[in-house]
């Protein structure tokens, strides 16, 4: 199925979770608590359809066709 990720079309497996998406994009293995299993901080956050999905919910949150997902991190600024 297709979702929008950071403003662009993105294909994910049917029923994919937010956790699978974040793990795939960042290339890090995630635990069910939404933390990287390597112990280093992940430093990203997810909004789905303009609502923040807490990392503790990533594992249990299935994406749906057409979802609008923003995946953000800290960059230089301010």
């Amino acid at each position: 199925m297709n979702i929008r990720l950071n403003g662009a079309q993105h294909a994910v497996a049917d029923g994919a979770t937010v956790s699978a998406l974040v793990g795939g994009i960042t290339g890090r293995a995630l635990g069910t608590d939404g933390r990287a299993t390597d112990g280093r901080k992940l430093g990203v956050a997810v909004a789905r359809n303009a609502e923040v999905v807490p990392r503790s919910q990533w594992h249990a949150t299935a994406l749906a066709e057409g979802d609008d997902v923003e995946l953000v991190t800290a960059v230089q600024g301010g």
């Binding site: 901080k41 995946l71 991190t73 800290a74 960059v75 230089q76």
Partner: peptide
């Protein structure tokens, strides 16, 4: 130190956060 929040880009992400830490 301040940082901005922007869309994640696999090519360049992570390093600023680590630099500060």
């Amino acid at each position: 130190t301040t940082v901005a929040m922007r869309r994640y880009s696999p090519a360049e992400s992570g390093s600023l956060f680590e630099l500060l830490a």
